[in-house]
Write a protein that binds this DNA or RNA. Sequence first.
DNA 1: GAAACGTCAAGAGCATTGCTCTCAATTGTT
DNA 2: AACAATTGAGAGCAATGCTCTTGACGTTTC
Lengths: 245, 245
Amino acid sequence: MSDAAASAETSLRTPRERARAQTIADIVRLGREHLAAHGAAALSLRAVARDLGVVSSAVYRYVANRDELLTLLLVDAYNDLGDAVDAAVNAEAEHDFAGRFGALGLAVRGWALREPARYGLLFGSPVPGYRAPASQTEAPGTRVIYSLVGILDAAYRAGELTAPPARAAVVPSALAADLEAIRAGLGLAVPDGLIANGVLVWTSLFGAVSFEVFGQYGADTFSARDQLFEHHLAVLAGMAGFQGS
Amino acid sequence: MSDAAASAETSLRTPRERARAQTIADIVRLGREHLAAHGAAALSLRAVARDLGVVSSAVYRYVANRDELLTLLLVDAYNDLGDAVDAAVNAEAEHDFAGRFGALGLAVRGWALREPARYGLLFGSPVPGYRAPASQTEAPGTRVIYSLVGILDAAYRAGELTAPPARAAVVPSALAADLEAIRAGLGLAVPDGLIANGVLVWTSLFGAVSFEVFGQYGADTFSARDQLFEHHLAVLAGMAGFQGS
DNA sequence: GAAACGTCAAGAGCATTGCTCTCAATTGTT
DNA sequence: AACAATTGAGAGCAATGCTCTTGACGTTTC
């Protein structure tokens, strides 16, 4: 897989490499379809092989094992979500920070409802026995939070974010150290209280989406789910520091 | 299983019924251990049978299939969580509504960190191919939200909950109809804006817990997770309408 | 051009799973 | 004691992940 990735970045010299990369791409595509149809835990290499028109053992030439296919699908899904979020955010005016924040939230929700199984793979219970290799998943897996942090930091620098009420701005020392490390690592200007609130905005956004995707609301408790989410986004914007229009 | 449940409630007359109930209890206990050890998707009736010291087909005398065992474990976990939450809430003074709210949040998080696999079964991605029967899971599955709603409603009636800022209090009509149905169904006094905020508090609480349990925070981004969660709880209390102390 | 090498798909095979069926033994009741 | 209900054992079917060997194919090199 690292070979394939490397050659994919260096333009696939030989026909063999091209054929191999194409086969791997087909496997990932079929795996994505099975994931969407039956969920992560039911992902079967044999079924992928059948759809590929090949005997089961043949796919092991291209993918070491089931876990590696899961990793490929994980990265694929993270990037798909990241692309959707980036596109939605960049469709808003560069200095309309509140607009960008709302677009990010709607993009996450829209993608999750469109791709519930892939969303579950990323943000649901971990697949038993599978441990995602950080080296491959960290970069794509942090795209959304980095985008959110970027929006909030830019808004703060533009003076459009007001500090949270005093109560929420008081941060105990050990937590303050964590936040300071984050601020230093990402070169942020945002103060502690707003970072801590931003983390809650982040987890709350995914909490609201997860409840909807995973069916935690009853079947018929909410019929106006779009409006409910828009309302939640407005409250979260206030929590992040944006002032109401 | 409905037979066993019925007889369990009516004091288990015959010795056969007692033996049967005991065997089912053992199966659930072993299933719980396997769940904690290997996750929901890896739950195996054969493995449970092995631990029970019995051939695989024998367990089908007590449990119709794997899905039914999952349902038993689901109900078991919901009730365990509900018991933990009730105990924590009732340990606070009856009229210390903010204290009860905080206790509820800490109880959920504590239980989730203690029982990550069972938490994942309840609030993670749905097990593929399994559909929880609402008739059995609805009552235990709503204990936490009903407890939360009860606290907020009591606090409101006591005048300790202040309405959210005007912006967040404006609720579009379709959503207002949903909220009205909830208010009528549960006999609540809380106004629309606060109910809508309460829903967000609910989802945000579980969003924060899920991020921690499912490892969405990096391995070493936050070392002071207790303090982070306490801070989040304080912000959520404000969102629910509690005034800062 | 032919030989050596690397790559690939097929098939058999092992251990695992959920679940069904039949048969024998045990147990409780009449 | 005889009967009937309940239970466990075992075989069996269709799947799964994964490994190994075998034979065929393509590419590179001499």
